[in-house]
């Protein structure tokens, strides 16, 4: 029996998840800048103000610490807030509430409370955002025990993982790739469709090379894998979907089969998501490796404005394809 689905863009899938959860649970509310009348910088929350009113779609002044203070404080006393930080780049002005408060409260208060907050953050390149509106900060938050870090790559996963994030009792930082916002996909309409954290998704099967990719790099990897099939090279494209918790098992099982690993992510290379995944495989799956691990990242450079410069530094299908061939 096939599930009932609807084709929609990533940003609409997030909106649908939020809408369903707000209908289901009165303690869910939204807070952020320009999320009401304007509908959010990327229109994710468009129409929600009309539907739920200003009490639950709370527009704020430009005060990121106050936004997250509101969300985290409300979560500490049992609400389930969803806070939007307009661009991942703006996380730098409100790290305090995420790192020292939300992530720590359960542990440092001896398990007296939990903090069921969801922090939504659009990130990544592709809109000529330049150095302060394009960054990929997801790996920073993997370094903070107490947070769960989610990074879906398509519409279906946006919906399923957003619903899990809202229902989860722990603080979740939900990275929304800007390019994935506009990618269409079939999204289940079941109101209880959720995707558990800690389960990677395999997009293609293959015995030759494992490609682990996140965000916009998943689509680039799928394109590369499709092209490589023409040369009879079979790649397994895996999206971890949640960076914390990380589904090591799926990655290690795949590397056991292929013996070769490429990791692709949009963050700059040093201390990136790819660094962590490469380290996991080097540490726990060294015996499976038949060749060196390749990491494909944006180099350690601020994101440039001019599209041709930006394009030159972001990994793409062609780069992935060429590197797979190096490993064969």
């Amino acid at each position: 029996m096939g599930e009932e689905t609807k084709t929609m863009r990533g940003l609409e899938a997030i909106r649908l998840a939020i809408e369903e959860e707000m209908e289901r649970d009165e303690s869910v509310f939204l807070i952020g800048e320009d999320i009401g009348r304007f509908g959010g910088a990327f229109f994710v929350t468009e129409g929600l103000l009309e539907k739920f009113g200003p009490e639950r779609i709370r527009e704020t002044p430009i005060s990121e610490n106050a936004i997250l203070g509101c969300a985290v404080g409300a979560a500490m006393v049992g609400m389930r807030p969803i806070a939007e930080i307009m661009f991942a780049d703006f996380l730098t002005v409100c790290m305090e509430m995420i790192v020292n408060q939300a992530a720590k409260a359960s542990y440092m208060y001896g398990g007296q409370i939990s903090v069921p907050v969801t922090i939504r953050v659009p990130f990544g390149t592709g809109i000529m955002g330049a150095a302060q509106h394009s960054q990929s900060f997801e790996s920073w938050f993997m370094h903070v025990p107490g947070l769960k870090v989610v990074l879906p790559s398509d519409a279906r996963d946006f919906k399923g993982l957003m619903k899990t994030a809202i229902r989860d009792d722990d603080p979740v930082i939900f990275f929304e790739n800007k390019r994935a916002y506009y990618l269409t996909g079939d999204v289940p309409l079941d109101k209880d469709f959720t995707i558990p954290f800690g389960q990677a998704r395999k997009f293609t099967e293959g015995d030759d090379v494992t490609i682990v990719a996140t965000g916009a790099m998943v689509q680039e990897s799928i394109i590369a894998a499709t092209k490589l099939k023409e040369d009879n090279i079979q790649c397994e494209v895996i999206d971890p979907r949640t960076l914390v918790p990380m589904d090591k098992k799926t990655i290690l099982n795949s590397v056991e089969k292929t013996g070769k690993l490429i990791v692709v992510d949009e963050g700059c290379k040093t201390c990136s998501v790819s660094a962590e995944i490469a380290a996991i495989v080097a540490e726990e799956g060294f015996q499976f490796l038949k060749n060196r691990i390749i990491r494909l990242n944006t180099p350690d450079v601020p994101i440039p404005y001019s599209p041709n410069l930006e394009k030159a530094i972001i990994p793409n299908a062609k780069l992935i394809q060429g590197n797979v061939k190096k490993l064969i």
């Binding site: 709370r58 509101c70 985290v72 404080g73 500490m76 006393v77 049992g78």
Partner: peptide
């Protein structure tokens, strides 16, 4: 709702508590 090691971190949290109430 907790002593807090970060100077100034209490008031933003208080916002959320008051809002929830």
């Amino acid at each position: 709702l907790g002593a807090n090691g970060i100077v100034g971190a209490g008031p933003p949290l208080a916002l959320g508590v008051a809002l929830a109430s």
